[in-house]
Design a binder for these strands. Sequence first.
DNA 1: ACGAATCGTAAGCGATGACTTACGGTAAGT
DNA 2: ACTTACCGTAAGTCATCGCTTACGATTCGT
Lengths: 105, 105
Amino acid sequence: MAYQDAITALADPTRRVIIDKLRTGPLPVGAIADGMGVSRPAVSQHLKVLSDAGLLSVTPTGNRRVYAIAPEGVDELRRYLDTLWDDALAAFARAAEEKAKGKST
Amino acid sequence: MAYQDAITALADPTRRVIIDKLRTGPLPVGAIADGMGVSRPAVSQHLKVLSDAGLLSVTPTGNRRVYAIAPEGVDELRRYLDTLWDDALAAFARAAEEKAKGKST
DNA sequence: ACGAATCGTAAGCGATGACTTACGGTAAGT
DNA sequence: ACTTACCGTAAGTCATCGCTTACGATTCGT
């Protein structure tokens, strides 16, 4: 009960930028908000969405909160897409096969 | 230049239901719309979004239009998530390592 | 102890998007 | 040829979402 939230979270462009910024490693909020065109509170809201979706982990360190990509959350989404991938391929092959047979019954 | 559209398309619950209906094989619009709580035009609109995102293929057959999952589109999204997965794992390992070292430099 | 810094939350606003009804267009059936 | 079935599109409505400004809480520095 989570891959749906992960997809919804990644649907927003700004949130994808945040994810990209965290690809190289964990960052505090200020560093994340720095450079992107939106205010820091907006970034905070996005971080909450991403965290709730299980895509980010938070580590309160003294004054600041360090965010990092949570591999588990990404993996959940990955597994969903894998099953979709498998089914799509199977259906594709079956459809091609029926077409070749002339499709009777 | 497409995985973004794929994610956006899959973000909607109704569209995910459509995708699930097509997992077992291609279906015409009527069969897709049948049983889900929204009107057929709504389904048509969703089908357009999914098609534009590269997640579905259309095959006009006489009177009706048969939709099927496009493996290519799914694969694009899959590859994006794989790179994210790789980076996340690498960053995770690096962070753990630095923490163990006591973090110098 | 006091001021500055870092960050989350609340309230309000504007835009995007999902849905409905109504309509037009093409193919199949008789 | 006429009717029926199947489907996409247009217009309009209503909710959702992302953004901003304002504020409060906690922690660091001096």
